[in-house]
């Protein structure tokens, strides 16, 4: 076993980041906090694409392009989410996801 980072080191790292993100999505009360946790998830997914691109298909660049797409989708998602939060805050005066339950019968 060597200390210098290999494929499995990288994979464990991105998995840890992903599972921290899962914890955040499930436990955060503030909607903005949930959005941040989702960004953590997306970031570690993009990282996985790059890791596999680097270790499993070095001469090609497709993983990097996937990472670019993930970044672009994350940007679109953040824009929409921010607009929603502002709209919700305007009508409900809170962005606590446990309080926003109008759709509950």
């Amino acid at each position: 076993m060597s200390f210098s980072p290999e494929l499995h080191h990288w994979l464990i790292l991105s998995t840890i980041l992903f599972s921290i993100g899962i914890y955040g999505v499930l436990t955060r009360r503030n909607a903005v906090g949930v959005l941040m946790s989702v960004e953590l998830l997306l970031n570690s997914a993009a990282m996985n694409f790059l890791i596999f691109n680097h270790y499993a298909s070095k001469p090609f660049i497709d993983g990097a392009i996937m990472a670019l797409f993930i970044i672009a989708v994350a940007a679109a998602e953040a824009v929409i989410a921010m607009a929603l939060f502002v709209a919700i805050f305007r009508s409900r005066k809170t962005v606590d996801v446990t309080q926003i339950n109008t759709l509950k019968g």
């Binding site: 941040m36 960004e39 993009a46 680097h54 990472a67 921010m82 939060f85 502002v86």
Partner: peptide, 29 residues
């Protein structure tokens, strides 16, 4: 991992765009 271009885009879009948007969302709410 030697993907310097993706790193640049990550800084530009994530840190320069998305984080600032999130900070704005926090400030507004």
């Amino acid at each position: 991992l030697n993907y310097d271009f993706i790193a640049g885009v990550q800084l530009l879009v994530y840190v320069g765009g998305i984080v600032i948007l999130i900070v704005f969302a926090v400030m507004l709410t």
